[in-house]
């Protein structure tokens, strides 16, 4: 019925997914945006979600994070249906940082306050997160006057400050310069080393290679390929992933793939 290539089944060796989606479906304005999607995220890994524009990557992240309810199917967190407690174990960084109209420090303490962290502990953890994002100097600045790169660093710090087990990032570096991108990637890397599971949507092939352990390729509301990020990017097996990667290569290297037209995407 549908093409779906996965080597997870081979690689996993019985490892339980931290987050999974089963027959997930979501429509808006009569269009089927997520169409019977199955997915499993492995714990303590960095999963990169890629796919063409309009494939439903951002929507998928919101469904997985519980920001939107699916029309059908289910999201499971550690084997159980995703609930409030599961959501609170997750955090998300959006493409455009949403800064509260408070100081940089106030944005961090707010995230802790809603989790019931108060007093000295709140101050200490906020300070630590601020230091991690290298924003100590800007602690008292209104968050909204920071540069976009600083704002995104603060957004990552704010997402991490309450100690989530899983961090979603929706194209966090799409509008950042290379230096800021590197700073965000360093933060993601550090979080991963601390044991946080990462789920990152990106269009940046280099970033996917640098950060990705696993790769999930999404097309037209479905997962069409999963596997080791390096393997998928170098030797995509699905028609859609191959077309997309080669299209990128074509743009990057101005080399036209002889297979490009012949292997039109299958539906």
């Amino acid at each position: 019925m549908r093409e779906a290539v996965s080597d997870f089944l081979v690689d996993w060796a019985g490892e339980a997914p931290i987050l999974s989606a089963c027959s997930l479906a979501y429509s808006a304005e009569g269009k089927r945006l997520i169409d019977g999607l199955d997915l499993a995220i492995r714990p303590n890994r960095r999963t990169v979600v890629m796919g063409p524009n309009g494939a439903g990557k951002s929507l998928l992240l919101r469904l997985l994070h519980g920001l939107i309810r699916p029309d059908a199917g289910e999201v499971r967190w550690r084997g159980r249906p995703l609930d409030g407690a599961g959501r609170r174990a997750q955090a998300m960084v959006f493409q455009r940082p949403v800064m509260l109209r408070r100081s940089a420090f106030g944005n961090l303490t707010f995230a802790l306050a809603v989790r019931g962290v108060g007093g000295r502990e709140r101050t200490a953890r906020a300070s630590k997160a601020l230091a991690m994002a290298r924003l100590e100097e800007l602690s008292r600045q209104p968050a909204r006057v920071l540069s976009i790169g600083e704002q995104q660093r603060l957004a990552v710090a704010r997402a991490l400050v309450a100690g989530p087990e899983l961090l979603f990032l929706d194209e966090p570096t799409a509008s950042l310069d290379p230096a800021s991108t590197a700073a965000i990637e360093a933060l993601i890397d550090a979080a991963h080393r601390d044991g946080v599971t990462i789920v990152l949507v990106t269009h940046d092939l280099g970033q996917a290679r640098r950060l990705g352990d696993d790769l999930v390729f999404v097309d037209r509301g479905r997962v069409v390929e999963t596997g080791d990020a390096g393997r998928v990017l170098s030797a995509p097996r699905s028609v859609a992933a191959r077309a997309w990667v080669e299209g990128r290569l074509h743009l990057d290297a101005t080399v036209r793939s002889p297979n490009h037209n012949r292997n039109g995407r299958q539906t």
């Binding site: 919101r62 409030g84 959501r87 609170r88 997750q90 959006f94 949403v98 707010f110 809603v114």
Partner: peptide, 12 residues
């Protein structure tokens, strides 16, 4: 502007 961010942070 804040709705998604608040939902993500789990603001009551």
């Amino acid at each position: 502007e804040y709705a998604e961010q608040f939902a993500s942070l789990g603001v009551g």
